[in-house]
């Protein structure tokens, strides 16, 4: 208890510096608050972009209940999130652990693996991806050499979403770098002690690595989940904005965009944006509640 007081005082002294560094963010916030409030208002209107919005009460939200396309877009987004988030985090952790063993040229590997996560959402990479996975693209050419007839990766509604999940997993670099930093923070003495007690590698992973890394896993999970719900570019480019083939890559955000800008229904699009905000907030809240039971803070 006696230690607490000076600690708090020290933190206070440091606080103002933090706020100064945050100033640009607060400046930017003003430009966000206005559209934020505007979209809340528009969510309750009938607004076609070209004529002034008319108050519609809850009509947009009622319409959502019976909108089969909206339900399809929710399904696509949830499937994508539930599959790609755990998968990409697992790959990121796996690669980080391999690199953490002290590979020669670590800096190079780290950069190479990190690169896709910088480029993955970019138009050029998605175009390239479309080319690789085309009906007679390089992937199917390679499969053909070992006697497998590959599917139409991007044009078959049964495969198109999996191709996008693959693209997402490929961009595991960002969480990997964070995992790597986290692994470096785990004191080597824990492993040494465990080894002396004869713990297997798996046992060490479960009892040392996972608990000590759990705050990092949690951070990556929250980040990945939020980002995943907001996926847009990949399907916009692959399907040229249509969400095709047959609605199989119609992400929630893409449908929102279609509604707002292609179908002149910005009121509905705004209410969709708020539903998404609530969904993300809900998932994030569940995440934080669940975290009490599995995230271990070493302080």
């Amino acid at each position: 208890m006696t230690e607490v007081l000076p600690r708090v005082r020290r933190r206070k002294r440091q606080d103002w510096a933090g706020y100064v560094f945050l100033l640009p963010w607060f400046g930017g916030l003003i430009f966000m608050i206005v559209p934020f409030v505007a979209s809340l208002y528009l969510a309750f209107t009938d607004y076609d972009l070209l004529t002034p919005p008319r108050w519609a009460g809850l009509a947009n939200f009622r319409e959502m209940l019976g909108d089969a396309t909206l339900h399809q877009s929710l399904k696509v987004t949830f499937v994508y999130t539930l599959v790609s988030v755990p998968l990409s985090l697992a790959v990121a952790l796996g690669v980080a652990m391999v690199l953490d063993r002290g590979v020669r040229g670590l800096a190079i590997y780290r950069s190479v693996y990190y690169l896709p996560s910088l480029l993955g959402g970019s138009v050029a990479i998605v175009m390239l991806w479309r080319y690789l996975f085309g009906y007679d693209g390089i992937v199917n050419d390679l499969l053909a050499t070992i006697g497998i007839t590959g599917p139409a990766w991007t044009t078959d509604p049964d495969y198109a979403l999996s191709t996008l999940i693959l693209l997402h997993v490929w961009t595991f670099g960002a969480p990997m770098v964070i995992f790597l930093a986290g692994l470096r923070q785990i004191p080597a003495m824990y492993y040494e002690a465990a080894q002396m007690d004869g713990a297997s590698k798996w046992r060490q992973f479960r009892s040392i690595t996972l608990p000590l890394l759990s705050p990092i896993i949690f951070f990556n999970l929250v980040q990945a989940l939020i980002a995943s719900f907001q996926t847009f570019t990949q399907s916009y480019v692959i399907s040229n904005g249509s969400g095709g083939p047959a609605g199989s890559t119609l992400f929630y955000n893409l449908y929102l965009y279609q509604k707002g800008f292609a179908e002149f229904d910005m009121g509905y699009a705004s209410s969709m944006a708020w539903l998404l905000l609530m969904i993300i907030a809900g998932f994030t809240a569940i995440n934080f509640l669940a975290a009490r039971y599995w995230v271990f803070y070493d302080n």
Partner: peptide, 28 residues
């Protein structure tokens, strides 16, 4: 380990909250 930056619950909350908020806001 104790000299390096640590992630505790409070900072995590802040970080995740901020990035989440920023990302859901409509772009101008």
């Amino acid at each position: 380990p104790h000299d390096g930056p640590r992630l505790d619950r409070r900072r995590l909350l802040g970080l995740a909250g901020l990035t989440g908020l920023a990302a859901t806001l409509p772009a101008c």
